[in-house]
Simulated assay, not measured.
Amino acid sequence: MTPYDVPLEAAGFTFRVRVYPAAEPTGAVVVWLHGGAFMFGSIEMPEADEVAKRFGDHGVTAVSVDYTLAPLDALPDLDTADAPEGMPSAEQIQAEIAAAGPRARFPVASLQSVAAFDWAVAYAASFGGDPARVGLGGASAGGNLAAGAAVRLRNRGGASPAALLLAYPVLHSQLPPAGEELAALLVGLPAMLTFPPEQTRAFNRNSVGDEALLADPTAFPAGHDQRGLPPTVIVTAERDRLRTSAEAWAAELALAGVDVAIRTERAALHGFLNEVGDAAALRTVARFAAAL
């Protein structure tokens, strides 16, 4: 079925969701958030569009969120000097995303994520969904937004995600240290794919603006009370510096009594959901659909 856009408003900003109705709906729905260091990305990128279509193959209707991006203040910290072939330069990235519309820092995208979830629950029946089977998920920075929204929903009470589905997310404002095994796997990768802690922290700080907000559990949930969060499925990339964040947070969830499963895609790099037809990407969407 043909996807369609729905305009919404939250936190003083207009945004939209794109609904991908499953041709043969099972009743499951996922509200999905793309990644991009909080500053980049759109619902047109494969990590949003292709993922949403693949959810449909499993009978899951996807609601892709075109949330308001953060300002570009951290762009100079993005080292593209040795970017892989085919990756855009910093100048190309800046030109591409300059037309993304109004920008705003936390908590705008976080509140929009909650609003998108609430909309999906309210209208699930209109596209063959079950309001009790609406999941919330995302990749990279989108995984952060999904997790933060889950914390907001838990604190608020009422409708809660049927499952939290995260691909290579960042849950810490400062990445946990990498062990020898991961450090060895990162050798030889372009700098921009190794996520140096100082660069990642610059992106994270840019997303919130105020340094004090890095400690807000709805901005970066790691290190806070995880009790009462939804059943969670996490998929990481083996050769990804952000893997330390996902692994540490999964341990926190388990200790808090949250039903959590974590899987590592061997040899995969961060952002593999952007690779159309990639086997790891197809497996990941299938795992997420099964959780719903």
Rank of each mutant, 00 (worst) to 15 (best):
V65I: 02
V114F: 01
P84R: 08
A28H: 13
F55H: 09
A124M: 03
P76R: 06
F38G: 08
A37P: 03
A90V: 14
V134C: 00
S89M: 06
A122L: 03
D57L: 13
Y123D: 14
A83H: 10
P102W: 12
D66V: 04
D82C: 09
A81R: 15
Q94V: 11
P107A: 08
A125S: 13
M39K: 08
R103L: 08
Q112C: 04
G59C: 01
V29L: 01
Q92K: 12
A28R: 14
F40P: 08
A37K: 08
G135D: 07
L75Q: 12
F127A: 10
G86F: 09
G135A: 15
M39Q: 14
V63W: 05
M45V: 15
P131G: 05
A104F: 06
A122G: 01
R105F: 05
Q94P: 07
A70W: 02
R103S: 09
D82Y: 08
V63T: 08
E96S: 15
F55D: 03
A99D: 15
A100V: 12
F38H: 14
E44G: 13
P25A: 04
A90C: 10
T80A: 13
A48K: 10
V121W: 00
E91G: 08
E96H: 14
S126C: 10
A116W: 02
V51L: 03
A52E: 05
V63Q: 05
Q94E: 15
L78N: 07
S110Y: 13
A70G: 05
V51P: 01
Y67H: 15
Q92V: 12
A48E: 02
I97E: 06
P71M: 03
A104R: 05
F127N: 09
D49A: 12
Q112W: 02
A116D: 04
S89Q: 09
V121A: 03
M39C: 11
S113K: 07
S42V: 11
G101I: 12
G86E: 08
F117N: 01
E96L: 14
K53P: 06
A62H: 04
A37C: 13
F127T: 10
R54G: 07
D77M: 13
K53I: 09
I93P: 03
A90E: 13
A70Y: 05
A109N: 06
E47T: 14
A81C: 11
G27A: 05
A48V: 10
F127D: 07
V30T: 13
F106C: 04
A81V: 13
F38C: 10
E47C: 14
W119C: 02
F55W: 09
P131Y: 07
A37Y: 12
S113A: 15
L75A: 15
P76K: 07
A100R: 15
K53S: 11
R103D: 11
Q92S: 11
G129S: 01
P131L: 07
A52M: 08
V65L: 00
T26A: 04
A52H: 06
R105A: 04
P84K: 03
S113P: 09
E47K: 13
A124F: 02
P46D: 11
A48P: 03
Y123G: 11
V60S: 00
A90R: 15
A90K: 15
R105L: 11
V63H: 07
V65N: 02
D118H: 05
